[in-house]
Computed example of a mutant assay.
Amino acid sequence: MSFQSPHTLDTVITAARKHCAEDVIPNVDAWNRTAKWPRDTSTKAGAMGLTGLYAPVEFGGQGLPLSEGIRVYEELGRGDGAYAFALSMHNICTFAGCGYGTDAFKAEWARGLTSGTKLANFALSEPQSGSDPVNMYSRAVDNGNGTYTINGAKAWVSLAGEADIYFTVVKMTDAPGHKDMAMIAIPADAKGLSFGPLYETPSYNFLPMSEMYMKDVIVSADNIILPEGQGLQGSLMAIDIARVSIASGCCGLMQSALDTALAYSSNRKMFGGTNLDLDGIQWMLGEVATDLEASRLLYRAAAQALGTDEGPLMAAHAKRFVPDAALKAANTCTQVLGGMGLLQPYGLDRLSRLAQMLRIVDGTTEISRVVIGRHLQKRAKTLAPLPIPKGHGEA
């Protein structure tokens, strides 16, 4: 299938829905059994226009704004949240490379990334620093001849050993702080780049994740995506996009869990009717449905706010609320099926594990609470203090 103009949200959503129904849902269990990334499937996603969502049309992308393109992951999340997550990270890297990369980088990589024939991933976390990226050891040294030498290690690298290029955040000096941080794209075939053993994960074995090691890796200055001083700010923006994308994928997961519970409970005979005739079952699934509608509204509002002053806070709200709601939904729907909910063919155990994973990646729900809490502290300073009644609040 070749994706054609016009590059509208409706056509892209239709393509994502078709890709999920035909290529993801029927095959995800087999992917997990073989523990291998489905490269043919992600390449097909590219041919359907799903790997260059935010990239300019001139480079083969769809040219969608973030607020629209992010809705694709809700469709893909109905099939598998880990697959949706991996494609979301690729799209973020493609957006960065096509938007901020050098002309030489774009000439070499842009069309491969937007077409999905080349895969990209983002590398920020390190073994000793996840939520605190400023505590970073990876270093890039200017060789003075148009190249940089990079040493260090990254952790939780998705598509490890599978991606063709890794957008890697490094420090340029040993000075403390973030003012010397940059983002450099490291090709997978760079000498000195290697990967550790794959992490053992419970329900997304097909998504390779491991540590990434850089030993005297030499990269051209043409591969600098964000120059020194812009690395942290760009990384935080990427993380905000990722958080909203995860919330979008979680909505697809919730819809899948709800549909499974509805299909089962409307057919399961009990007490002279069906499970779905029981008030208790209706109330349980009704709460899931309300959480799903609230989650959709929240992630879409957060997507609209990306790139504005409210963007980080709205992304934190979405990442705090929606994955928690998805985990609750998966568990509730499992309960509705009773013992059957524990059986692998129904897929609810997989959805619960995926929801837990999505609560953690790209900033745990606790980190989102920190972001929200700091905003509340700032707001509190703008409010007139309320007097404490005499005799209260005193030791």
Rank of each mutant, 00 (worst) to 15 (best):
I239L: 12
A238M: 08
R17L: 03
R243L: 09
R379G: 05
R300T: 08
E293W: 12
K328A: 09
M357F: 13
M214K: 03
L383H: 03
I70M: 10
I13N: 00
K215H: 13
L87M: 07
L124T: 02
L236P: 00
E74W: 03
R268W: 15
A182Y: 10
G69L: 02
I281L: 01
A330L: 06
A123S: 09
P133H: 09
Q304K: 15
K44I: 10
P38N: 09
G229N: 11
A303N: 09
P6Q: 02
G77R: 04
M357K: 12
E22M: 03
E108K: 08
G112E: 07
G69H: 03
A86V: 03
A104S: 10
K215T: 10
I367E: 13
R139W: 06
R374K: 06
G339Y: 15
L124E: 08
Q282C: 12
D164W: 15
I225T: 00
P227H: 11
P312S: 07
E108V: 04
A82P: 01
R353I: 00
L64D: 00
A185Q: 01
G252R: 00
S245L: 02
L262N: 04
P385H: 08
D259G: 05
A257N: 06
S266N: 14
T14H: 05
G46D: 11
G101P: 02
Q128V: 06
I360E: 14
I360S: 10
G101F: 05
V134T: 05
A188K: 13
A163R: 04
T332I: 04
I360P: 00
R350Q: 13
A153I: 10
G286P: 14
E68Y: 02
H375C: 04
D362H: 11
S42T: 15
T365F: 13
A329T: 09
G280K: 08
I225M: 10
Q377N: 10
W109H: 01
T51P: 08
L119Y: 13
S125C: 11
V217A: 10
A182I: 00
S125P: 01
V72N: 02
P127G: 03
V288L: 02
L236S: 08
T51I: 03
V28K: 04
T364N: 06
S352H: 13
T94L: 03
S295E: 05
K18M: 08
Q282I: 07
P389F: 15
G286F: 15
A294C: 04
A263K: 11
